[in-house]
C-alpha cells in the first residue's frame, strides 16, 4: 500500500482513571493509520504511541477480535459499535472513516454498566441476569438419541436467531432509556422456544425480568434502536415474546 492512503485522524477519547474519579474527553491526533486496520488496531497504534511517550494507554475491552465474543464495545461517534450495521467494533475497519475525520470514542453508558477505566465498563449486570434464570437444568450423562426430542424447524431457527446474542451490551448503550430488554428477551427466547426450556419457562421469565429491574436498567419504549445497533441483528420480536410470556407467567403465578 502506498503511504498516501494512510489516514490522519483526530480522536476525542473518554479518559477516566477509575470508577470513582470524574472523566473527561481528551483530544489526540494520530497519523499513519492503514485503512485496512480495524478500529481496535487503530487504538493499539495510539496506545503504542502513548506508551512510547511515557503516557498511560487507553484502556478498552477486547478479546477474540473476530466479532463473536461480545467483549468489545465503544460508542463511536455516538453509535454503539460505530456506524456499520450488524458489525462489532473489532470488525469495523478504518476505511469507513475519512482522512482528517474527528472520531469521538466513549464507553457504553448505563447506571448498570459502571465505567472501570477509560473505555472499559463492568457488564457483571448481564451475568447476574443470566444467573437469575438464563439456563436449563438437564441430566448429565450419556447424550440421548438425536431427534428423540422433536423441535419444529421454525422454532429451531427462531431460537438460533435469539442465541446469536453475544451479550455485548450495545442494546443497552444505544437505548435512550438504557433498557436491557433486547438482551434479556433474547436469552429468555433462546430457551423458551425449545422443549428443553419449557419446564422452567415461567420461573425463568419472572426471575430474569425482576433481576433486570432490580439492577436499574430503564424501561423499553419500543423505538428499536437496540435492534438497529445490535451487531447480531437480534429482532425486537423477542421483546414482544418476553412481554407476553411475562404477562402469562404473572397471571398464572400462585405466589
Amino acid at each position: 500500500m502506498s503511504s498516501d492512503n494512510l489516514l490522519t485522524l483526530n480522536l476525542k477519547i473518554w479518559r477516566q482513571k477509575n470508577n470513582k474519579e470524574k472523566g473527561e474527553i481528551v483530544d489526540y491526533t494520530i497519523d499513519g493509520i492503514s485503512p485496512d486496520a480495524s478500529f481496535l488496531e487503530m487504538l493499539d497504534v495510539l496506545n503504542e504511541k502513548l506508551i512510547a511517550e511515557g503516557n498511560d494507554p487507553v484502556a478498552f475491552d477486547h478479546d477474540c477480535r473476530e466479532g463473536i465474543c461480545g467483549m468489545c464495545s465503544l460508542m463511536i461517534n455516538g453509535q454503539a459499535h460505530g456506524p456499520e450495521a450488524e458489525t462489532t467494533t473489532c470488525q469495523l475497519h478504518m476505511r469507513k472513516f475519512q482522512n482528517g475525520e474527528t472520531i469521538v470514542v466513549e464507553p457504553f453508558r448505563a447506571r448498570a454498566f459502571p465505567v472501570l477505566k477509560d473505555l472499559m465498563i463492568d457488564r457483571t449486570a448481564f451475568d447476574d441476569i443470566i444467573a437469575s434464570g438464563g439456563f436449563v437444568n438437564v441430566n448429565t450423562g450419556n447424550a440421548q438419541d438425536a431427534n428423540s426430542i422433536l423441535v419444529p424447524k421454525e422454532n429451531a431457527e427462531l431460537a438460533m436467531d435469539a442465541a446469536a446474542c453475544i451479550g455485548c451490551g450495545a442494546c443497552v448503550a444505544s437505548c435512550k432509556n438504557a433498557s436491557a430488554m433486547l438482551f434479556v428477551s433474547a436469552k429468555v427466547s433462546q430457551l423458551s422456544l425449545l422443549p428443553q426450556g419449557q419446564l422452567e419457562a415461567e420461573e425463568r421469565v419472572k426471575n430474569m425480568v425482576s433481576k433486570m429491574d432490580e439492577l436499574g436498567f430503564g424501561n423499553c419504549t419500543n423505538e428499536a434502536e437496540c435492534e438497529a445497533s445490535c451487531p447480531k441483528g437480534i429482532s425486537i420480536s423477542n421483546i414482544a415474546r418476553m412481554n407476553r410470556d411475562f404477562l402469562s407467567a404473572a397471571v398464572k403465578a400462585k405466589d
Binding site: W14, A112, G216, G218
Partner: peptide, 22 residues
C-alpha cells in the same frame, strides 16, 4: 423518571442509527 435515572452520565455525542427510532 426511571428512564432518565438509568443513564446518569449522558453521552458526549449521541447519534441515532436511522434504522430504529422515529
Amino acid at each position: 423518571y426511571e428512564n432518565n435515572k438509568a443513564r446518569p452520565q449522558k453521552y458526549y455525542v449521541k447519534q441515532k442509527t436511522g434504522r430504529g427510532a422515529t
